[in-house]
Design a protein around this nucleic acid. Structure first.
Lengths: 143, 143
DNA sequence: ATCCTAACAGTAATGATTCCTATTAGCAAA
DNA sequence: TTTGCTAATAGGAATCATTACTGTTAGGAT
């Protein structure tokens, strides 16, 4: 009577997402699981990432350097995003108080579904290098 | 002796960006200026948007529904983004204190260049409509 | 055993953005 | 004025992440 069919590949994706802190892209997930599942297709990765997001099992971080990034950590937290290499760090949730968000939502008439404090800049690794040499090597950092 | 050549189209773009609060996309700018400059090209819009960003005259808000959005307001502020129609509202800057950001940057070793509090949800106009009928074909299929 | 349908692979299509190439136009020195 | 240099530009091709489409497979239910 289970209306959600099992899927080994989707399960592997969820395990992978939960076991890393690097906030992977779809392609990274594909590359990682291609070894264990040689017939894995990139379309399946996208389909399952959307499926997992739609069921609230993972979250979208937002596109970085043109690629959407995903997060297996569901607890509320904020992010630091390196402007060069795209590394994403988890930051402890330290948002403006609930009262501010509530009053703002009343004042502007919106209905908040999520909020996040996003800091952008250079990560420790990129700080010492030539600024913005246009070689954002996401693959290197994530491999 | 001026090494920055003038450009009527770029100037018009900057004026347009500064005169609106709708955080336009490249295509919106193109559509708006096409009437006054019939020979305007979309490539020119992208080139000038990047030029203006590179010179700090406008800012990127981030991609919403697959399209980058731009902001002519340079003063620090946060954003509300409607998950359905993509409307972006300016929110007064109410970020975690400078001390938190400083201690976090020390603790994690990053060098912050910008920070923003991003709230996502439904805007006033979209609240009363059927949820996510427009741009979440995926969520519908999954439900 | 037979349906039914989710999961899947492979591939085509989409669409925003960038890249490439040739052309135009404004400024400066001769 | 004329020549030369270069930014600005148009138009179109190319790129690339993502989605859509099509046919197939496989596992649970009846």
């Amino acid at each position: 009577m289970n209306n959600v069919r099992q899927s080994k590949k989707r399960d592997a994706m969820l395990t992978l997402l939960r076991g890393t802190t690097c906030h992977p892209s779809a392609d990274w997930v594909y590359q990682q699981l291609k070894a264990e599942y040689p017939d894995l297709s990139l379309g399946t990765v996208y389909r399952n990432l959307n499926h997992l997001c739609g069921h609230g099992l993972i979250r979208r971080v937002g596109p970085v350097n043109g690629q959407e990034r995903y997060d297996g950590t569901l607890s509320p937290h904020s992010h630091f995003i390196c402007n060069r290499c795209g590394t994403i760090l988890d930051l402890p949730q330290q948002s403006p108080g609930q009262n501010w968000l509530e009053s703002a939502s009343v004042q502007y008439g919106f209905q908040a579904e999520s909020c996040e404090f996003i800091v952008r800049g250079l990560c420790r690794t990129c700080e010492d290098q030539q600024p913005y040499a246009q070689n954002s090597t996401l693959e290197e950092k994530l491999s």
